[in-house]
Design a protein around this nucleic acid. Structure first.
Lengths: 294, 294
DNA sequence: CTAATTATACTCATAACGAGCATAATTAGG
DNA sequence: CCTAATTATGCTCGTTATGAGTATAATTAG
């Protein structure tokens, strides 16, 4: 059975979370597993760095699965090992897409974020209503939990659960019945979006207890820039003063002598990540300082 | 490249965390990946349930890696996909081992827990001293962090990091130089202990935010029994009153009409897990109510 | 009847968190 | 120069979560 490695390369550019894609945004980069590497992880790292020229920061394995065999093509079923990798990009490189193109409802910082969820919830309610009463109730419960309805609160880590719910409901192109109208959001080939959803969920979880967000930042940055990057990844707006408190209290950053050059209001001091905390204990406060969603 | 599935089956029996092994405790159960299953996960579940007769509760994928090819045997290198699975056992079944037989230092509830860590730390200090000064300092920092020295506090989730440190230092049989004396603890063939360490770490992390601990409990139990089970998994003693507060406040359990039969002091009420919270939001308080390690 | 043992209910101080007020230091535009 | 707009930064305050311990209840062993 052939084995492939799949990389979800993530960067944040101009406060937007980006993912590296190929073939017009429809597939994620992947390559065959080559023998001879010391470990799968170093194999992936070498391969990506050679293919894309990007130095990778944090790399972690996501999930391994057997893909659906493409019977038409007579393909053999293969084992896919997926990875999350963080890096930085510069403007103008090709193939980078905003990950919210694929999951518009995951961006709860957008002005229409809640409204979009409400529209999706209405479609899902149709799906629940189409089932027998007992099953319908189960579905309603899942919908409320995953989409934070009925006062339950939005959980930004449930990216995969939301996608799978839409998949089951036939509301994504990957699973929609002929003629069925899918929810807005670009699709990918095969399991692409499922893998991307897994990567997003993992990253959103990770930034709460490991300082991986700095892998996505330039060397020096303002606290607002840092906040915007976290908000981009989490898809949620945060309370500015409390965000600073969280960052500074934990000594994650240190001041530089400079202030940000292009600025509108009061100039902001530039900070730098204190690399020495990398190995250190988990960062405190697993809770991000969200603002109340109004 | 052949692909194998490896299962780390965990149960808790008489307040001891147990793992299912074969061949005198030296290997974990594994089997070939069979085509035709809907997913790897269901494939594993069916296979384990057929082989062992155990109904599995929670199952989750751990990690996929390429094992070191056994050149002597002329083996081909293979891809190993490991899983954590929770179940229950009854006395007298074969092959179940206390996981602390493999990692004695992970049991910080044992009276000699800290003393054992101190002895290991001394051996590791030798290893740090053997390196050039700069590298030695890095090693000392890692040792202090992973083993909670110098007032840093024991982090029960660092099981894998501790094992890998000992591996690097040549203090486990898997890596010890000829004639080198390893730290106490039974070894396993190949990457067995590394996989077990991964499973332990994952489970210790998981019980903090998902109610998976109940997969290891009988239908009804006292709060002390529940506490002992959590302590067995976490390897750390907890504050009794605060433990109850954490469990009851979150409505994870409901009272039954009965009290525990065989009891020494005041009879304890029997509780039952409220299955309806399974799908629900993550359980609060990621912190377990530890007692101060004195 | 007493000591030992376990269960259970509360209290209290402190730390963490969510929310917001107040002030400082800029630029843009009259 | 003056004012409004804008962003940065410092600080307060109430609430909740957490760590630690006291007090009391209900049993059994002797």
């Amino acid at each position: 059975m052939p084995t492939k490695l799949i990389a979800v390369l993530i960067a944040v550019s101009e406060d937007r979370p980006m993912v590296l894609t190929l073939e017009g945004g429809r597939v994620l980069p992947s390559g065959p597993l080559e023998a001879g590497h010391r470990s799968l992880q170093t194999g992936l790292r070498l391969w990506v760095e050679r293919q894309t020229g990007h130095a990778l920061g944090h790399v972690e394995q996501l999930y391994t699965f057997a893909d659906a065999p493409d019977n038409d093509a007579g393909d053999e079923r293969s084992v896919l090992i997926s990875y999350l990798a963080l890096t930085r990009i510069h403007r103008g490189e090709h193939g980078w897409r905003n990950w919210y193109d694929y999951f518009p409802w995951e961006d709860q910082t957008a002005p229409d974020g809640r409204a979009l969820v409400a529209r999706i919830a209405a479609r899902l309610e149709d799906w629940a209503r189409a089932a027998p009463p007992a099953l319908g109730a189960v579905r309603r419960q899942r919908i409320a939990l995953t989409f934070g309805l009925e006062g339950l609160g939005w959980d930004d880590e449930l990216v995969l659960q939301r996608y799978e719910l839409l998949w089951e409901a036939g509301l994504v192109p990957e699973s929609a019945p002929p003629g069925g109208a899918a929810v807005r959001g670009q699709d990918m080939a095969g399991d692409g979006r499922r893998i991307l959803a897994t990567a997003m969920a993992r990253l959103r979880a990770k930034i709460r207890y490991r300082p991986v967000i700095f892998e996505l930042m330039p060397d020096s940055f303002t606290l607002l820039h840092l906040q915007r990057t976290v908000e981009a990844v989490a898809g949620q707006a945060m309370h500015k003063q409390n965000f600073r408190r969280l960052i500074t209290q934990q000594d994650l950053v240190e001041e530089t002598a400079e202030v940000a050059p292009d600025t509108r209001g009061r100039p902001a001091r530039l900070f730098r990540f204190r690399r020495e905390v990398i190995g250190a204990r988990r960062i405190a406060g697993s809770k991000l300082p969200l603002t109340r969603p109004v």
